[in-house]
Amino acid sequence: MNMKSKIMDASAIERAIRRIAHEIVEQNKGLENIYLVGIRSRGVPLAKRLADYLRQIENTEVPVGIIDITLYRDDLSTISHQPVLKGSEIGFDIENANIILIDDVLYTGRTVRAAFDALLDFGRPHKIQLCVLIDRGHRELPIKANYVGKNVPTAQDEIIKVSLAETDGEDSVKIFIRADVEA
């Protein structure tokens, strides 16, 4: 597979998450009523790491939930493979909660749209904020992240691959050209 460039390594990822943790505390004036929800699959380890930093900073345990958007996707009728269904695990009442939704890459915005729908079926949170490690542009829906690890301007034919130790064995963010990935 032909990699175009590596844009983040393990320490860059860690620094970004740590900085976001500080931003969360600052913008919310603490962690009162804050709940993290990671979007499957790579939003989940990111949410857990964020919770670790928040504990270090504020000495507060922030609950972490998991949302699976498979059943809420708008592209099910166009994809030819079958996605794996793992389910959501929201172990807290989201009614009136301040939710911070976490994903690895923000691209068209469709995943986030699906995550909103999936989350709102559990109840009516007070507020939802969005946190992503990478914002690569090319939005197809009017969605904006509140917390961004790194803005990466990309071309449409490029693919951003976020690897995390928990799911992929290493921490890195790389750019590939689409043709190379498919080959």
Binding site: D68, L71, L85, K86, G87, S88, D117, D121
Partner: peptide, 23 residues
């Protein structure tokens, strides 16, 4: 069976509807 487990969680919620097969 694994997919059924996920559906079971959905059916235990207050709001039991999914948009998946719309259309």
């Amino acid at each position: 069976l694994e997919a059924t487990q996920v559906m079971k969680q959905i059916n235990l919620r207050d709001y039991k509807k999914l948009p998946t097969l719309k259309g």
